[in-house]
Amino acid sequence: MPRSRTATGCRSRPAPVAHPRVAVPEDAESIVRLRSDYVLSEPLSEEWILRCAEELAPRLTHAGDARAFVIDAGDGSIDACALGLIHPVLPAPAYPKGLAARVHIVATRPDVRRRGHARAVVSALLDHLRTEQVTLFELHSSAQAAPLYRELGFAGSPALMRMTATSPQLTVPGGRPGATSTPSAPEHYAETVPKATLWACLYFTDEDEQPVQVHSVYSPAYPWQLVGGTMDHGEHPWQTAVRECAEETGITPAGPPRLLATVYSPPGGGWPYSTIGCVFDGGRLTAEQIRGITLDPLEHDEVRVLPLAEWEELMPPGDFDRLTAVAEARRTGVTAYVDSWEWGTS
C-alpha cells in the first residue's frame, strides 16, 4: 500500500512514537497550562495558573493524591498529559480496597494531535493506578473522545463514563495466602477517618473541695468554665493544660499530670468536628492563691468558688453533669469517661 501524500505531493513522515513518563512536581505548571488552554471553556488568568500549580505540585508526590503522565515537547514544555486524582470510596466486591480515581485532565496540544498521545498518556495512567490498587475509574468525556475511552474499557454515556477494572490480589510479604496489602499512602486512609478537635483543662478546688471556675466573656451559652483550652499543633494534652492555665490565670501547675476525666462531644453548635478533651487535676488552691488569680480580660471576667450543688443553676445541664463527673473522679480516684456532653445550638 502506498504511503499517504500531503497536499504538495510529498510523502508525509510517520508520527513519532509517544513515550509517556511519570509527572513530577516540577511539571505542575505545564499541566495546568494545558488544562487552561485546551480543556477549560475559559482560560485561567496568570494568577490562577500559578495558584493551581502551587496546589498541584505537592499532590504529584508519592504521598499526594495526584498521579499524571506526560509526553515531553522539544522546547521543555509538554505536548500531552493525563492527570488522575485518587480518592477513597466505600469498598465493594468490585473495588475491595475502596480506592477510586477520577481522570481529571486529558489534554494534547493541537499541533501534535492524532499521533496517539492521548491514548498513550491515559493508558499509562490507568496502568499505574492499577498498581496502587485503584480499581474504580471515572471521567467526564466529550462525544469526540468517547470512542477512545470505550476502547480502554470505560462504559456509560459520554457525559459520565466509568470503568471498573479487576485487580489481582497482592500477597502481603510474610502474610497468609490470600491476604492483601493495604494502600501505599497513609494519607489516603487518613482522609477516611473521623476528625476531632482536642482540648485540655484543669479542675481546681479550694481547700474545702469546692470547684473553682472562671466566667467567660465570649460564650453566653457556656458561661462557667474550667481553666483550659484548645490544643496547639505539636502539643501534648498536659502541655496544653499548663499553657492555658498560665495564660488564663497566671498559675503554672507543677504536676505531675493526673487525669480525672476524658470528655467526648460529637459535632454540633456550628462546629464540624468532634471534640475530645482531657481534664487534669489542678489541685487545691488556698484562699490567697485564689485571690491572686490574674484573668485575661479578653477571655474571662470573674473567678467564683461554690459548693458543687450551687453550680447547677448557673450552668447548662450537660456542663453540670460533666463537672459532677470530674468532682466524683477526684473524690474516688477513678477516672471518669464522659461521652454524653453535646454542643447546644447557640
Rank of each mutant, 00 (worst) to 15 (best):
D206K: 08
L160P: 00
A327L: 01
A190L: 15
E187V: 08
T335Y: 12
P220V: 12
C81L: 03
Y222L: 04
R33N: 09
A73L: 02
G318W: 07
D79T: 14
Q289N: 09
G178L: 05
Y149W: 04
D79I: 03
T294D: 12
V193E: 06
F137W: 08
T332V: 01
G153A: 02
P158F: 09
T6E: 15
R322L: 15
S123R: 12
L226G: 10
V242A: 09
W199G: 10
L202K: 01
R114D: 15
S123D: 14
I105A: 03
D111F: 00
P88R: 10
T230S: 14
H236M: 11
M163W: 14
R330Y: 05
L125K: 08
S142G: 12
F204V: 03
Q239K: 08
M315D: 05
R51T: 15
V70E: 07
P58Y: 02
Y337E: 15
L226T: 12
T8A: 12
D296K: 12
H62S: 14
H128G: 11
V326P: 01
P93M: 02
I86V: 14
A241L: 07
P16Y: 00
Y203K: 04
A159M: 04
S36L: 03
V227L: 06
E248P: 00
V212P: 00
H215K: 06
Y337C: 12
T166R: 13
Q213Y: 06
E312R: 11
G282R: 04
E244Y: 03
P177Q: 04
D232S: 12
D296A: 13
R291P: 00
P316Q: 13
D281V: 09
E187C: 06
V24P: 00
V334E: 15
A107W: 14
